[in-house]
Simulated scan of single mutants.
Amino acid sequence: MAGERPLIVLAAGGTGGHLFPAQALAEELRRRGYDIHLMTDERVRDYGKNFPASATHVVPSATLSLGKPLQVPGRAFRLYRGYRQARGILASVKPKAVVGFGGYPSFPPILAASRLGIPSCVHDQNAVMGRANRMLSRFATRVASSFPVLMGLPEQAKSKLVVTGNPVRDIALQEKAAPYPSLTAQEPFNLLVFGGSQGARFFGEFMPKVIAALSPEMLATLHLVQQVRPEDMEQVKSAYGSLSFSFDLQPFFMDMPKRIAASHLVVCRSGASTIAELGVIGRPAIMVPLPHALDNDQLRNAESFAKAGAGWIRPQAELEPKAFAQFLTRLRYQQGELAEAAEKALGHGRPDAASRLADLTEFLAGTHSK
C-alpha cells in the first residue's frame, strides 16, 4: 500500500544484553522512517516493556546444550517449531531485512530469512562471538561486530564482517561524553556499583565488607549508589547503616545512564551493554567479570576496556575486601588517574554505533526489492 513505512524485523532474546542494542537500532531506524517488528522469546515480558516496535512476535526457541544429550531432541524440535513459525510470519509481513542480536531466539528468524531470500545480519555484542551467532553466520548476509577483533568468527564468515560498535539506547546517548564530575579531597566521591541479578547478589555480599574496611576519612566523603536484590536489601542496608556515610540502594535503576554520568568510578560486571554505555558516557570502571561465563565473553570485554586504559579487571575469585578497599582509596585520592581513565573510556566508546548499524541495515534493505 502506498505510504506504508518499510518494515525491518529485529530478532533478540529477552535479556537486557540482547534487547538493549536491538532497542537502540529500533530507535534509530524509526527516526529514519522504518516500521519495526520484534521477534523474541517469552522473557520479553520482563525486559522489553519499552521496546519501540509496532508488533512483537513471541517465537519458540531453545538453547542447544550438547552437554545434556537427553535434552537435545526436544530442544531441537522446539527450535524447528520456532523456525516454521518465524518463516510463516516473515512470509506474511514481508520485511526488507532481518537483524538478529544473538542468543537462540535469533536462530529461527535468521534461518527463516535465509530460506526466504530476505537479507539478514547478525550483530554480536561481545568480544567473543556467541555460539548461536557462530552457527548463524553461515546463513546471514552480514556479520556486525561491537569490537574491532571478534574472536570465534568462522573463517568462511570473515568476508561478511562489518565493525559497527555496540548500539546504546537513546537514554544513554543523552549522557554522551558527560563532563567528568569535579573531585577533590573535600568533595563527595560518587561510587556506583551494579551488575545485573548475579552481580547484584555478589556485590551485595562483598561490598559491605569493603566499605567496613575503609578509613573514616574515606567514608566522610563517600556517596555510594548500589543495585541490591530485594531479598538482600535489609541485610545490606543494616550493614551500611552501622557506618557513617551516604548511600542509595535500589533493586533496579530506571535511570542507570544518569547514575553512570554522575559517578566518579563504577564497580560492575563487564557485559557488552555495560561496556558500551561506559564508553559512550566516559566513565572508568573496576570490572569483575562474571565467573564461568560462556566462552569467557565478559573477561574478553573487560580486557578490551582495560587495554584502552579505561579501567581495571579484578577476577572475582581473587577479590579480598581489605585489598579492594585500599585500591578504592588509592584511586579516590589520585584524582588524575580516574579523570584520565574517563578520557580513555570515551576513546573506547562508539556513540555512532546505532547509526552505523542502521546504515548497514538500510544497505541490506536496499538489496531486497520485494
Rank of each mutant, 00 (worst) to 15 (best):
A2G: 03
L7E: 09
A11N: 06
A12T: 07
G16I: 00
G16L: 07
H18Q: 13
L19W: 03
P21I: 02
A22V: 06
E27P: 11
R30W: 07
R31Y: 00
I36P: 00
H37P: 01
D41E: 01
E42H: 01
V44Y: 10
R45M: 02
Y47Q: 12
F51M: 05
F51V: 06
A53E: 06
T56M: 02
H57K: 10
H57R: 06
V59D: 07
S61C: 11
A62I: 02
T63D: 11
L64Y: 02
L64T: 05
L66Q: 09
G67P: 05
K68T: 13
Q71K: 14
V72Q: 07
R78S: 12
R81M: 06
G82F: 05
G82V: 08
I89M: 12
V93P: 14
K96F: 06
V99K: 06
G100H: 02
G100W: 04
P105D: 08
S106Y: 09
F107Q: 14
L111N: 06
A112H: 10
A112L: 04
L116S: 15
I118A: 01
C121D: 01
D124R: 04
V128G: 08
L136A: 04
F139V: 11
T141L: 08
R142V: 14
V143G: 05
S146Q: 12
P148H: 11
P154I: 03
Q156K: 13
K158P: 02
K160I: 03
V163W: 11
V163D: 06
T164V: 03
L173S: 12
P181L: 11
T184P: 00
A185Y: 01
Q186C: 00
E187R: 13
P188V: 07
P188H: 09
V193C: 09
F194I: 05
G195D: 07
G195R: 13
G196R: 13
S197L: 09
G199W: 05
A200N: 10
G204V: 13
E205R: 14
F206D: 02
K209E: 12
S215T: 15
L224V: 02
V225P: 00
Q227D: 03
R229G: 11
E231C: 10
D232Q: 14
E234P: 08
A239L: 10
Y240I: 11
G241L: 03
S244E: 09
D248N: 14
Q250T: 10
F253H: 14
M254K: 13
D255R: 01
I260Y: 10
I260G: 04
C268K: 10
S270I: 07
S273F: 03
I275D: 04
I275Q: 07
A276Y: 12
E277Q: 15
V280M: 08
I281C: 01
I281Y: 03
P284M: 10
M287W: 00
P289M: 10
P289D: 02
L294A: 15
L294H: 12
D295E: 11
D295V: 00
R300G: 00
R300A: 15
N301E: 05
A302R: 11
S304V: 10
R314A: 10
P315H: 14
L319F: 09
L319I: 14
F324H: 01
Q326K: 14
L331I: 13
R332H: 13
Q335V: 13
Q335I: 09
L338P: 02
A339W: 00
A339N: 06
L346I: 03
H348K: 00
D352P: 05
L357K: 04
S369E: 08
S369K: 02
K370W: 01
K370Q: 08
